[in-house]
Amino acid sequence: MNGAFLSQLLIDGTTTGLVIALVALGYTMVYGIVELINFAHGDIVMLGAMLFLTLIGLLGLDHAGQSWLARHPWVALAVLVPACATFGAAVAWTVDRVAYRPLRHLPKLTVLVTALGCSFVISNLGLLWGGLPLAVFGGGRAPSSPKSVPDLLPTLNLLGADSVVFLGTKEALVLGLCLPLMAALTWFVRCTRLGIAMRACAQNPVAARLMGVNVDALISLTFVIGGALAGVAAVAYATYHGTVQFQLGYNLGVMAFTAAVLGGIGNLPGAVLGGLVIGLVQAATTLWLGSDWTNVVVFLVLILTLVFRPNGLLGTQMREKV
């Protein structure tokens, strides 16, 4: 094992990890404020990726050089990323408004089962979406099969053509999307009035309401932010991994939720840390044991971590009031 090998592992792991972390942030924010595992969140990412692929098809970006936009992929991305983010935010807001909000006062399990229902509905919508007769979907004859996403960006090594370590434009795109977003989110939650209100609401909704905070609006805002992050994650995922399938929501969602739990659920830096750990574990497992074993190893890491730190890596012990 040499340095180049290890750096490649780090790059691959960090890139997958950051996409997972972006999704995990959505889970952890929603959990922090309404204590709900929003199972539909992963599927919102999937819908975002479907929209991304559809827009690529509609704008003709799958035929290189055919249109002005296709010749300027960075401009195209600058349009597509906000579009997917808005879409994700809209879906997340709708899900909360329609399905979760009427159940706020009911026990957690009721809302959780509703979330599972939403997840099924959305992933099924993704399946049907994949059946639309579009060229990018292979004509829609096989809705459940994976659809490949055309490369928008040129394949080139940013570290130089003769470098052993590969850092391509896709990796750069993922880094360029995820890191600023995470920084912005941290700033928002730490420094803005809304962010502080959100944290207060997560700690004690009753007290926050008594202080004049509009808790329902804040919860909606949390879903909207989470959804927007999911939309961006969808673009990052689809570009980086190159395929989209209706089951993507479950697979990515489970990894992201695992990341959130690993880092300590409700804790934003924890979600990012958890995502990175999982990305690196995945990359290392794929290299040494083969991709068949990634899920086994990831979940073993999760269980072992929780045995020793029952509240996750950065989570704090919750003290029950007696």
Partner: peptide, 20 residues
């Protein structure tokens, strides 16, 4: 079969809403 989980999911959501 391609609509099964849509119907199933909606049924779950409605069930939780109407008879939790």
């Amino acid at each position: 079969n391609n609509w099964k989980f849509l119907i199933f999911g909606l049924a779950l959501i409605l069930a939780m809403r109407l008879r939790p």
